[in-house]
Design a protein around this nucleic acid. Structure first.
Lengths: 136, 136
DNA sequence: ATAATGTCTCTAGTAACTATAGCTTCAAGA
DNA sequence: TCTTGAAGCTATAGTTACTAGAGACATTAT
Protein backbone atom coordinates (compact mmCIF):
# COMPACT_ATOMS: atom_id res chain seq x y z
CA UNK A 1 0.00 0.00 0.00
CA UNK A 2 1.38 3.36 -1.07
CA UNK A 3 0.87 6.75 0.46
CA UNK A 4 -0.17 9.58 -1.79
CA UNK A 5 3.38 10.96 -1.70
CA UNK A 6 4.78 7.62 -2.84
CA UNK A 7 2.21 7.42 -5.63
CA UNK A 8 3.14 10.93 -6.63
CA UNK A 9 6.83 10.02 -6.80
CA UNK A 10 6.15 6.91 -8.86
CA UNK A 11 3.90 8.54 -11.42
CA UNK A 12 5.24 12.07 -11.54
CA UNK A 13 1.80 13.51 -10.77
CA UNK A 14 1.78 16.11 -8.00
CA UNK A 15 -0.11 15.37 -4.81
CA UNK A 16 -2.78 18.08 -5.13
CA UNK A 17 -3.31 16.98 -8.71
CA UNK A 18 -3.96 13.40 -7.59
CA UNK A 19 -6.59 14.62 -5.15
CA UNK A 20 -8.02 16.79 -7.90
CA UNK A 21 -8.31 13.80 -10.23
CA UNK A 22 -10.09 11.90 -7.50
CA UNK A 23 -12.53 14.76 -7.10
CA UNK A 24 -13.10 14.89 -10.86
CA UNK A 25 -13.89 11.20 -10.91
CA UNK A 26 -10.88 10.17 -12.97
CA UNK A 27 -9.63 7.85 -10.27
CA UNK A 28 -11.59 6.02 -7.60
CA UNK A 29 -11.40 7.13 -4.00
CA UNK A 30 -8.81 4.74 -2.53
CA UNK A 31 -8.85 2.92 0.80
CA UNK A 32 -7.81 4.92 3.83
CA UNK A 33 -5.42 4.21 6.68
CA UNK A 34 -6.69 4.25 10.26
CA UNK A 35 -5.62 7.88 10.35
CA UNK A 36 -7.69 8.67 7.24
CA UNK A 37 -4.79 8.89 4.82
CA UNK A 38 -5.11 7.60 1.26
CA UNK A 39 -3.57 4.20 0.53
CA UNK A 40 -3.05 3.09 -3.04
CA UNK A 41 -2.37 -0.24 -4.74
CA UNK A 42 -0.34 -0.91 -7.88
CA UNK A 43 -3.63 -0.79 -9.76
CA UNK A 44 -3.77 2.85 -8.73
CA UNK A 45 -0.29 3.39 -10.09
CA UNK A 46 -1.32 1.95 -13.46
CA UNK A 47 -4.42 4.02 -13.77
CA UNK A 48 -2.66 7.21 -12.78
CA UNK A 49 0.17 6.47 -15.21
CA UNK A 50 -2.40 6.07 -17.96
CA UNK A 51 -3.85 9.45 -17.03
CA UNK A 52 -0.47 11.13 -16.75
CA UNK A 53 0.56 9.82 -20.10
CA UNK A 54 -2.68 10.87 -21.75
CA UNK A 55 -2.38 14.35 -20.28
CA UNK A 56 1.19 14.61 -21.54
CA UNK A 57 -0.19 13.82 -24.97
CA UNK A 58 -2.60 16.69 -24.52
CA UNK A 59 -5.88 14.79 -24.14
CA UNK A 60 -8.46 16.66 -22.10
CA UNK A 61 -9.79 15.24 -18.86
CA UNK A 62 -13.11 14.59 -20.56
CA UNK A 63 -11.36 12.64 -23.32
CA UNK A 64 -9.42 10.67 -20.77
CA UNK A 65 -12.60 9.74 -18.97
CA UNK A 66 -13.84 8.33 -22.24
CA UNK A 67 -10.61 6.49 -22.94
CA UNK A 68 -10.54 5.03 -19.43
CA UNK A 69 -14.09 3.85 -19.77
CA UNK A 70 -13.25 2.22 -23.09
CA UNK A 71 -10.17 0.54 -21.66
CA UNK A 72 -12.39 -0.98 -19.00
CA UNK A 73 -14.39 -2.86 -21.62
CA UNK A 74 -11.96 -4.90 -23.73
CA UNK A 75 -14.76 -6.58 -25.64
CA UNK A 76 -16.03 -3.38 -27.24
CA UNK A 77 -14.95 -2.24 -30.68
CA UNK A 78 -12.19 0.32 -30.47
CA UNK A 79 -13.72 2.69 -32.96
CA UNK A 80 -14.37 5.35 -30.33
CA UNK A 81 -10.84 5.29 -29.03
CA UNK A 82 -9.61 5.91 -32.54
CA UNK A 83 -11.94 8.72 -33.27
CA UNK A 84 -10.75 10.46 -30.11
CA UNK A 85 -7.13 9.96 -31.14
CA UNK A 86 -7.65 10.98 -34.75
CA UNK A 87 -9.58 14.08 -33.80
CA UNK A 88 -6.83 14.98 -31.40
CA UNK A 89 -4.23 14.42 -34.10
CA UNK A 90 -5.99 16.90 -36.34
CA UNK A 91 -6.10 19.42 -33.55
CA UNK A 92 -2.39 18.97 -32.92
CA UNK A 93 -1.58 19.40 -36.58
CA UNK A 94 -3.57 22.61 -36.67
CA UNK A 95 -1.73 23.93 -33.65
CA UNK A 96 1.63 23.08 -35.18
CA UNK A 97 0.78 24.93 -38.38
CA UNK A 98 -0.28 27.99 -36.42
CA UNK A 99 2.81 27.96 -34.23
CA UNK A 100 5.12 27.68 -37.22
CA UNK A 101 3.62 30.75 -38.85
CA UNK A 102 4.05 32.49 -35.54
CA UNK A 103 7.64 31.34 -35.26
CA UNK A 104 8.46 32.80 -38.65
CA UNK A 105 7.03 36.14 -37.68
CA UNK A 106 8.67 36.25 -34.29
CA UNK A 107 12.01 35.40 -35.84
CA UNK A 108 11.59 38.22 -38.23
CA UNK A 109 10.59 40.83 -35.68
CA UNK A 110 13.17 39.82 -33.10
CA UNK A 111 16.01 40.43 -35.54
CA UNK A 112 15.51 44.20 -35.19
CA UNK A 113 18.47 46.11 -33.82
CA UNK A 114 17.06 49.60 -33.69
CA UNK A 115 18.26 51.83 -30.87
CA UNK A 116 14.88 52.99 -29.62
CA UNK A 117 11.20 52.18 -29.64
CA UNK A 118 10.34 54.67 -32.37
CA UNK A 119 11.72 52.40 -35.07
CA UNK A 120 11.57 49.04 -33.34
CA UNK A 121 10.16 46.27 -35.50
CA UNK A 122 8.58 44.45 -32.57
CA UNK A 123 6.31 47.32 -31.65
CA UNK A 124 5.75 48.33 -35.22
CA UNK A 125 4.73 44.88 -36.29
CA UNK A 126 2.38 44.43 -33.41
CA UNK A 127 0.81 47.80 -34.05
CA UNK A 128 0.16 47.22 -37.71
CA UNK A 129 -1.25 43.90 -38.68
CA UNK A 130 -0.82 44.84 -42.34
CA UNK A 131 2.94 44.40 -41.97
CA UNK A 132 2.67 40.72 -41.20
CA UNK A 133 4.06 38.21 -43.59
CA UNK A 134 1.37 35.70 -42.81
CA UNK A 135 -2.27 35.57 -41.90
CA UNK A 136 -3.33 34.81 -38.36
CA UNK B 1 -17.37 57.73 -32.21
CA UNK B 2 -17.87 53.99 -32.33
CA UNK B 3 -20.09 51.81 -30.22
CA UNK B 4 -18.59 48.73 -28.60
CA UNK B 5 -20.26 46.56 -31.24
CA UNK B 6 -18.71 48.56 -34.05
CA UNK B 7 -15.30 48.38 -32.37
CA UNK B 8 -15.76 44.65 -32.02
CA UNK B 9 -16.56 44.30 -35.72
CA UNK B 10 -13.55 46.34 -36.75
CA UNK B 11 -11.03 44.58 -34.59
CA UNK B 12 -12.42 41.07 -34.42
CA UNK B 13 -12.41 41.15 -30.61
CA UNK B 14 -15.64 39.99 -29.01
CA UNK B 15 -17.66 42.45 -26.97
CA UNK B 16 -17.30 40.77 -23.56
CA UNK B 17 -13.59 40.46 -24.25
CA UNK B 18 -13.30 44.20 -24.86
CA UNK B 19 -14.99 44.89 -21.53
CA UNK B 20 -12.70 42.34 -19.93
CA UNK B 21 -9.62 44.09 -21.33
CA UNK B 22 -10.90 47.36 -19.93
CA UNK B 23 -11.31 45.75 -16.53
CA UNK B 24 -7.81 44.31 -16.72
CA UNK B 25 -6.39 47.75 -17.49
CA UNK B 26 -5.23 46.90 -21.01
CA UNK B 27 -7.36 49.63 -22.51
CA UNK B 28 -8.53 52.87 -20.94
CA UNK B 29 -12.16 53.28 -19.97
CA UNK B 30 -13.60 55.19 -22.94
CA UNK B 31 -16.00 58.11 -22.94
CA UNK B 32 -19.65 57.30 -22.46
CA UNK B 33 -22.78 58.38 -24.28
CA UNK B 34 -25.54 60.18 -22.35
CA UNK B 35 -27.10 56.77 -21.85
CA UNK B 36 -23.87 55.38 -20.38
CA UNK B 37 -22.76 53.38 -23.39
CA UNK B 38 -19.09 53.16 -24.36
CA UNK B 39 -17.93 55.36 -27.24
CA UNK B 40 -14.57 54.74 -28.86
CA UNK B 41 -12.28 56.74 -31.13
CA UNK B 42 -9.93 55.48 -33.85
CA UNK B 43 -7.19 55.58 -31.23
CA UNK B 44 -9.17 52.87 -29.44
CA UNK B 45 -9.29 50.84 -32.63
CA UNK B 46 -5.51 51.04 -32.95
CA UNK B 47 -4.83 50.04 -29.40
CA UNK B 48 -7.23 47.14 -29.52
CA UNK B 49 -5.78 45.97 -32.83
CA UNK B 50 -2.35 45.97 -31.25
CA UNK B 51 -3.71 43.86 -28.41
CA UNK B 52 -5.58 41.52 -30.72
CA UNK B 53 -2.54 40.99 -32.84
CA UNK B 54 -0.31 40.38 -29.84
CA UNK B 55 -2.77 37.86 -28.42
CA UNK B 56 -2.92 36.08 -31.76
CA UNK B 57 0.83 35.79 -31.55
CA UNK B 58 0.40 34.20 -28.15
CA UNK B 59 1.69 36.96 -25.90
CA UNK B 60 0.19 36.93 -22.43
CA UNK B 61 -1.83 39.84 -21.16
CA UNK B 62 0.99 40.70 -18.79
CA UNK B 63 3.46 40.77 -21.67
CA UNK B 64 1.12 42.93 -23.70
CA UNK B 65 0.84 45.39 -20.85
CA UNK B 66 4.62 45.67 -20.96
CA UNK B 67 4.71 46.04 -24.72
CA UNK B 68 1.99 48.69 -24.66
CA UNK B 69 3.85 50.64 -22.03
CA UNK B 70 7.01 50.47 -24.12
CA UNK B 71 5.18 51.60 -27.25
CA UNK B 72 4.03 54.64 -25.31
CA UNK B 73 7.61 55.80 -24.82
CA UNK B 74 9.25 55.98 -28.24
CA UNK B 75 12.42 57.49 -26.84
CA UNK B 76 13.33 54.47 -24.75
CA UNK B 77 15.71 51.80 -25.99
CA UNK B 78 13.81 48.84 -27.38
CA UNK B 79 15.86 46.24 -25.60
CA UNK B 80 12.95 45.18 -23.39
CA UNK B 81 10.59 44.70 -26.30
CA UNK B 82 13.13 42.40 -27.87
CA UNK B 83 13.75 40.37 -24.83
CA UNK B 84 10.00 39.76 -24.53
CA UNK B 85 9.83 38.72 -28.18
CA UNK B 86 12.92 36.53 -28.05
CA UNK B 87 11.81 34.78 -24.91
CA UNK B 88 8.45 34.15 -26.50
CA UNK B 89 10.12 32.81 -29.62
CA UNK B 90 12.00 30.26 -27.54
CA UNK B 91 8.80 29.21 -25.85
CA UNK B 92 7.08 28.79 -29.20
CA UNK B 93 9.94 26.71 -30.54
CA UNK B 94 9.76 24.48 -27.51
CA UNK B 95 6.06 23.99 -27.98
CA UNK B 96 6.50 23.15 -31.65
CA UNK B 97 9.10 20.51 -30.86
CA UNK B 98 6.83 18.95 -28.26
CA UNK B 99 3.82 18.94 -30.54
CA UNK B 100 5.76 17.31 -33.35
CA UNK B 101 6.85 14.44 -31.14
CA UNK B 102 3.25 14.12 -30.10
CA UNK B 103 2.09 14.19 -33.70
CA UNK B 104 4.40 11.32 -34.57
CA UNK B 105 3.07 9.24 -31.75
CA UNK B 106 -0.57 10.02 -32.44
CA UNK B 107 -0.09 9.13 -36.09
CA UNK B 108 1.39 5.85 -35.08
CA UNK B 109 -1.29 4.89 -32.60
CA UNK B 110 -4.20 6.03 -34.73
CA UNK B 111 -3.20 3.71 -37.54
CA UNK B 112 -4.39 0.73 -35.50
CA UNK B 113 -7.20 -1.26 -37.08
CA UNK B 114 -7.86 -3.79 -34.38
CA UNK B 115 -11.46 -4.91 -34.00
CA UNK B 116 -11.75 -4.46 -30.24
CA UNK B 117 -10.26 -2.71 -27.27
CA UNK B 118 -8.25 -5.70 -26.09
CA UNK B 119 -5.64 -5.19 -28.78
CA UNK B 120 -6.15 -1.56 -29.61
CA UNK B 121 -2.93 0.40 -29.95
CA UNK B 122 -4.46 3.61 -28.65
CA UNK B 123 -5.35 2.18 -25.29
CA UNK B 124 -2.25 0.04 -25.12
CA UNK B 125 0.04 2.93 -25.84
CA UNK B 126 -1.60 5.16 -23.30
CA UNK B 127 -1.45 2.46 -20.68
CA UNK B 128 2.22 1.70 -21.12
CA UNK B 129 4.52 4.62 -21.42
CA UNK B 130 7.36 2.25 -22.24
CA UNK B 131 5.85 1.61 -25.66
CA UNK B 132 6.33 5.17 -26.76
CA UNK B 133 8.75 5.96 -29.51
CA UNK B 134 9.72 9.22 -27.94
CA UNK B 135 10.18 10.77 -24.55
CA UNK B 136 7.62 13.19 -23.19
C1' DA C 1 8.88 11.01 23.75
C1' DT C 2 9.66 14.15 20.55
C1' DA C 3 10.75 16.27 16.28
C1' DA C 4 10.35 16.29 11.43
C1' DT C 5 7.93 15.24 7.75
C1' DG C 6 3.73 13.89 5.50
C1' DT C 7 -1.19 14.20 4.89
C1' DC C 8 -5.93 15.88 5.72
C1' DT C 9 -9.92 19.20 4.29
C1' DC C 10 -11.44 23.41 2.71
C1' DT C 11 -11.19 27.62 0.46
C1' DA C 12 -9.54 30.67 -2.84
C1' DG C 13 -6.63 31.94 -6.70
C1' DT C 14 -4.73 31.42 -11.61
C1' DA C 15 -5.41 32.84 -17.11
C1' DA C 16 -8.26 34.51 -20.37
C1' DC C 17 -12.08 34.55 -21.30
C1' DT C 18 -17.48 33.09 -21.90
C1' DA C 19 -22.28 32.88 -20.46
C1' DT C 20 -26.32 34.32 -18.09
C1' DA C 21 -29.88 37.35 -16.07
C1' DG C 22 -32.34 41.31 -15.85
C1' DC C 23 -32.26 45.76 -16.96
C1' DT C 24 -31.68 50.23 -20.02
C1' DT C 25 -30.63 52.72 -24.35
C1' DC C 26 -30.49 53.48 -29.19
C1' DA C 27 -31.97 53.85 -34.05
C1' DA C 28 -35.30 53.28 -37.50
C1' DG C 29 -39.90 52.71 -39.29
C1' DA C 30 -45.13 53.71 -38.97
C1' DT D 1 -44.06 60.88 -31.78
C1' DC D 2 -44.46 56.27 -30.63
C1' DT D 3 -42.93 51.76 -30.78
C1' DT D 4 -40.24 47.86 -31.38
C1' DG D 5 -36.20 45.17 -31.83
C1' DA D 6 -31.41 45.18 -31.61
C1' DA D 7 -27.65 46.57 -28.94
C1' DG D 8 -25.61 47.74 -24.61
C1' DC D 9 -25.25 47.98 -19.41
C1' DT D 10 -23.65 45.72 -14.75
C1' DA D 11 -22.84 41.98 -11.92
C1' DT D 12 -22.18 37.36 -11.04
C1' DA D 13 -20.83 32.78 -11.99
C1' DG D 14 -18.77 29.19 -14.91
C1' DT D 15 -14.89 27.27 -17.74
C1' DT D 16 -10.10 24.14 -17.62
C1' DA D 17 -6.70 22.02 -15.15
C1' DC D 18 -4.65 22.79 -11.82
C1' DT D 19 -1.88 25.40 -7.67
C1' DA D 20 -1.38 27.66 -3.15
C1' DG D 21 -2.38 28.45 1.60
C1' DA D 22 -4.19 27.74 6.33
C1' DG D 23 -4.64 25.10 10.18
C1' DA D 24 -5.22 20.56 12.04
C1' DC D 25 -3.96 15.62 12.36
C1' DA D 26 -0.92 11.24 11.23
C1' DT D 27 3.23 8.78 10.56
C1' DT D 28 8.08 7.83 10.93
C1' DA D 29 12.72 8.13 12.71
C1' DT D 30 15.63 8.88 16.44
Amino acid sequence: MLSIGELSRRTGVKIPTIRYYEQMGLIDAPERSQGNQRRYTSEGVNRLSFIRHSRDLGFSIENIKGLLELSQHPEKPCHDAHSIAVQHLEDVQGRIAKLRRLERELKRISKCDAGNIADCAVIETLADHGLCETEH
